[in-house]
């Protein structure tokens, strides 16, 4: 069995989510990587665990139509085709599946065997074990569930491919990076959230923002903090607000009401800082720290 992974480049490097997908793919056998666009060939070539990099330099912007068409021509050589559960992976792989009349499997969090996978359904409220009867399995991978392969140490061969003929029905116009320096809550790798324990809006900003700046984190809030006017509605994390699953979630001065937990419990690592050792947030935290926020948070800013 051989797997093909569609990888993504960001600032000249292979995205961590793609390296997680490669780690997942290595469970099936040898791994080839497909790289679209005119950058990143060097970074892709050194990825650990990759046999061959298929590079299509002329296919810029990773439009789904030509990308899926190209993948369809490569598919017969592979048992599994994977990508990260990113906006790009989820745009392209289901289209490929449509071309091949295969049922794709999104957001895989665990691989049971070559055709059996576990994936969350109902916004993570349940985990479904699914079995595919398709000849080629098409998967998108939840990066937080697979440790990424190393960026270096590999020595893949490079093969340059031509882009398929394009009918021009889909044309790239522009890409706009988010204006804010801070990532958006739902896609941030790190989230720091504050609750009522921060006492007022100025503390909320003054204590959380320096940490968020240092970690490149998005800022979230508990419902109580939003209701008390510390933070705007769109910052609310929880069942009625945004559901986030970052690599690192730092909860400060919030007790961890179940509505809040529903919005962040899928985070990979949870840190809780609270004065009340009985606060329910400690029951889900990987690292807890009991104490006064007004001392701990400035100290944390310094230590980072």
């Amino acid at each position: 069995m051989t797997a093909l992974v569609l990888i993504e480049i960001e600032n000249g490097k292979v995205r961590q989510a793609s390296r997680s997908a490669i780690a997942a793919a290595s469970r099936f056998g040898e791994v080839d990587a497909l790289l679209l666009g005119n950058t990143g060939a060097e970074a892709a070539g050194t990825l650990a665990g990759v046999r061959k990099v298929l590079h299509v330099p002329t296919l810029t912007h990773a439009l789904a139509e030509p990308a899926a068409a190209l993948l369809a021509t490569l598919a017969p050589s592979y048992s599994h085709i994977l990508a990260a559960s990113s906006s790009s992976g989820k745009n392209i792989l289901p289209r490929l599946a449509g071309l091949l009349d295969v049922q794709p499997i999104s957001d895989v969090v665990k691989i049971e065997d070559e055709s059996t996978f576990i994936r969350p359904i109902y916004a993570g409220n349940a985990l479904a074990t699914v079995q595919s009867s398709d000849n080629v399995k098409i998967l998108t991978i939840r990066s937080s569930s697979f440790d990424p392969v190393a960026e270096s140490g590999g020595n893949a061969s490079l093969e340059v491919l031509d882009a398929p003929a394009d009918d021009g029905k889909s044309r790239f116009v522009k890409l706009e990076q988010s204006q804010s320096d801070r990532p958006e809550l739902e896609v941030a790798r790190v989230v720091i959230s504050g609750g009522k324990g921060l006492k007022d809006a100025s503390n909320f900003h003054n204590l959380l923002e320096p940490i968020a700046d240092k970690l490149g984190a998005a800022i979230g809030a508990s419902r109580a903090a939003v209701d008390s006017g510390f933070a705007p509605n769109e910052m609310q994390v929880g069942q009625t607000g945004k559901v986030v699953a970052p690599e690192l979630y730092i909860a400060t001065g919030l007790s961890g009401a179940i509505q809040h937990l529903a919005g962040m419990k899928d985070s990979r690592v949870i840190v809780a800082i609270n004065i009340d050792p009985e606060a329910p947030i400690f029951k889900v935290a990987d690292y807890g720290m009991v104490g006064d926020l007004f001392e701990i948070l400035p100290a944390l800013t310094k230590a980072l």
Partner: peptide, 25 residues
Amino acid sequence: HLTVVKVAEPPQRTAGIIVETVDEL
């Protein structure tokens, strides 16, 4: 082509460790 073998509740998170200092954290 895809059959659901089983549906289960996600595992409950369990409490981790308590750290004493910011540096340790």
